[in-house]
Simulated assay, not measured.
Amino acid sequence: MRALVLEAPGGGLRLEEVPVPEPRDGEVLVKVTSCGVCHTDLHVIKGETAFPTPAVLGHEISGVVERFGSGVEGIEPGRRVVASFIMPCGSCRYCVRGRDDVCERFFSLNRLRGVLYDGESRLRRADGSPLAMYSMGGLAEYAVVPATDVFPLPEGLPAEESAILGCAVFTAYGAVRHGADLRAGESVAVVAMGGVGSNIVHIASAFGASRVIAVDVVGEKLEGARELGATETVNASESDPVERVREITGGEGVDVSFEALGRPETFAQALGMIRDGGRMVAVGIAPGESTAAVPITQLVRRSQRIVGSYGARTRADFPDILGLAGRGFINPQRTVTRKYQLEEAARAYEDLDRGEIRGRAVVVV
């Protein structure tokens, strides 16, 4: 099969022929239809996030079940499926408590070592040398996914665009549903209109937010946010975004702000937008060990909260996400604005790095 390989951080992506992986007990082999283009992959490509190399990246996929290992039930070959980037082991202390968004084995084995839960990667070169897997390694024609993370795609949803349900939508849903615990009628500001930020706007609107203020520095991205449900937009290249959000809200600030870029300056901006008693949800992954200053006295006196949100809870939330998408409350077609072929994937990440992609792009395999 063809797979896009990152040889080393900063070394670029190269298309290679590698053996088709084999699923083991409790695993599913998926013929990949498409894979989302995410900033988290870009951090690895640029060496801003540590990950073993050589590796195959790509962590939100749609596809078709090819075959599966022993112990897998309820999934038949030929079924259209999607998978999320958090692949729960199902047995660690967090998974058994329903908190598979912080699955111990996912973080210690997959995110640190690039392997699955028996300590080995399923991907290898023709000479037998291993290739690390970032989640399932979706930038390839086939991917092995734990059965805990394989979900049937509802009829009527498009196969290619639905790949983004596994990270861009999944991450946004977790931030809105659990990080913010957003209630109908509350006001929201979202900083950074990338794939995740755009979907936070979309989902917050679907959850009944009374006001959704989108913040970015690119006018085209703000226009796209309006199409997804933003009631107001703020161009941070033209005015101070904190002052502008407070002006829109009559000086009070919003009930909830979301930061979806992972930069110290946008973190501070999002925190400055919330009212007394408000919540700020940090969603964006930062390069390296970036830090942001927090005004301690303001946080304490004004009873504000800062919450980190990495993703949704795979086994409990993904069926709900798919249900919302199937009923039209979440529309992945409205977020996907570009498609690339597998041989063009390196260019997709270059375009992403230049800020040229509005919403989300997908690589069609």
Rank of each mutant, 00 (worst) to 15 (best):
residue 273 M to V: 09
residue 319 P to N: 02
residue 134 Y to Q: 04
residue 142 Y to G: 02
residue 363 V to F: 08
residue 15 L to W: 05
residue 265 E to G: 15
residue 271 L to V: 10
residue 243 E to H: 14
residue 132 A to M: 00
residue 141 E to W: 08
residue 5 V to T: 08
residue 231 T to N: 00
residue 176 V to I: 11
residue 23 P to I: 07
residue 313 R to S: 02
residue 201 V to Q: 04
residue 268 A to T: 15
residue 15 L to N: 06
residue 228 L to T: 07
residue 163 A to C: 06
residue 336 V to H: 03
residue 88 P to Q: 08
residue 177 R to W: 02
residue 310 Y to S: 05
residue 324 L to A: 03
residue 64 V to I: 10
residue 193 M to A: 10
residue 103 C to V: 13
residue 205 S to N: 07
residue 148 T to C: 01
residue 48 E to S: 02
residue 197 G to Y: 01
residue 172 A to D: 06
residue 109 L to V: 07
residue 318 F to G: 03
residue 326 G to F: 01
residue 233 T to Q: 02
residue 365 V to M: 04
residue 59 H to E: 05
residue 306 I to A: 11
residue 47 G to E: 10
residue 157 L to F: 04
residue 342 L to D: 00
residue 84 S to W: 01
residue 244 R to F: 14
residue 22 E to L: 09
residue 89 C to G: 05
residue 135 S to M: 00
residue 204 A to F: 00
residue 343 E to Q: 13
residue 272 G to M: 09
residue 95 C to H: 04
residue 133 M to E: 09
residue 318 F to Q: 01
residue 3 A to I: 06
residue 153 L to K: 12
residue 97 R to L: 14
residue 68 F to S: 07
residue 158 P to Y: 06
residue 224 G to P: 03
residue 182 L to A: 06
residue 126 A to C: 11
residue 347 R to S: 11
residue 17 E to Y: 12
residue 296 I to E: 15
residue 87 M to Y: 14
residue 114 G to T: 02
residue 283 V to F: 13
residue 164 I to R: 02
residue 146 P to G: 07
residue 10 G to V: 01
residue 253 G to A: 13
residue 270 A to D: 15
residue 46 K to H: 12
residue 99 R to Y: 11
residue 270 A to N: 15
residue 164 I to F: 01
residue 348 A to Q: 13
residue 301 R to E: 10
residue 251 G to C: 14
residue 299 L to D: 06
residue 331 N to D: 08
residue 102 V to E: 05
residue 127 D to R: 14
residue 341 Q to F: 11
residue 217 V to I: 12
residue 145 V to K: 02
residue 117 Y to W: 13
residue 163 A to P: 01
residue 287 P to M: 09
residue 259 E to A: 14
residue 274 I to Y: 15
residue 225 A to F: 04
residue 281 V to N: 06
residue 6 L to D: 00
residue 162 S to T: 08
residue 127 D to H: 08
residue 16 E to L: 15
residue 123 L to G: 00
residue 166 G to I: 05
residue 8 A to Q: 12
residue 242 V to A: 15
residue 218 V to N: 13
residue 130 P to R: 03
residue 309 S to M: 07
residue 42 L to Y: 05
residue 14 R to K: 14
residue 364 V to D: 04
residue 191 V to S: 15
residue 45 I to Q: 03
residue 349 Y to H: 11
residue 234 V to K: 10
residue 25 D to E: 10
residue 249 T to Q: 13
residue 321 I to A: 03
residue 290 S to E: 09
residue 24 R to D: 13
residue 302 R to W: 13
residue 150 V to F: 01
residue 7 E to V: 12
residue 214 A to C: 06
residue 315 R to N: 04
residue 51 F to Y: 03
residue 13 L to Q: 00
residue 297 T to E: 12
residue 180 A to W: 06
residue 191 V to A: 15
residue 316 A to D: 04
residue 51 F to N: 01
residue 74 G to L: 09
residue 210 S to E: 06
residue 252 E to Q: 14
residue 250 G to Y: 13
residue 286 A to F: 11
residue 264 P to W: 05
residue 13 L to R: 01
residue 19 P to E: 02
residue 339 K to M: 12
residue 288 G to S: 05
residue 270 A to L: 14
residue 73 E to I: 11
residue 34 S to W: 09
residue 311 G to H: 11
residue 138 G to A: 12
residue 25 D to G: 02
residue 20 V to M: 11
residue 109 L to W: 10
residue 226 R to G: 05
residue 359 G to E: 12
residue 235 N to A: 03
residue 338 R to L: 11
residue 183 R to N: 13
residue 111 R to P: 07
